[in-house]
Amino acid sequence: MSPPRYEILLLIAMLIVLILGIISHVGYWIRINSHISKTAGIDVGKQDLRKALHMHHGSNFNTIYITSWSLLLVAFIYLYFMTPQIFSGLNYFSIPNIASGSFGLAALGAAVILIPGSLAALFIPRACSYYTVTRRMKRMSLLAPVLLIISIFCSINLGSIYPTIDSLYWNLGFVTLILALVILLAPFIMGFAEEMRM
């Protein structure tokens, strides 16, 4: 059995980061629930807790956050599923009708934003509203769309030069993608870390 490709290992690493974010979120809820149950003096339902924890982060931040999550999905799909380099059977080039069209890439991006992107946009900012997001963290979040656009441009370049392979572009695309993911998950991870410190 041949060892897994280098890109697959990095994909696993990225999934671990994502799972870490999910674990942080769940852990945060469990910790907060336990603190409040111990001290509130009444039974606190999930709905009440959600209502109590909800915090506004501002329209500008929400816009950037939703845009960033949508771009993250697009950047991920472009990086892993644009060329047959990683998943030879499942990629953009295997749908010639779209791939050869003038707006093929845009259609792929739009499809990603519309289906999984809109779901992410609905749930992730809401989940984020239960956390304290400092102004510094908000300013950091401005980096996410910039990094993701760099990642998308790298993927587009890789798609354009295929079958030539340029590992520098792929690596740059991946690094910017994972950095953006860490920035977007920072409120969850930091929130859980703060709760753990108590």
Partner: peptide, 17 residues
């Protein structure tokens, strides 16, 4: 304002956070 300052446009208008 606790919201982000986007410089180019303010989605919140006068309703600052």
């Amino acid at each position: 304002n606790l919201d982000l300052n986007l410089m180019i446009h303010d989605f919140a208008g006068n309703d600052r956070l």
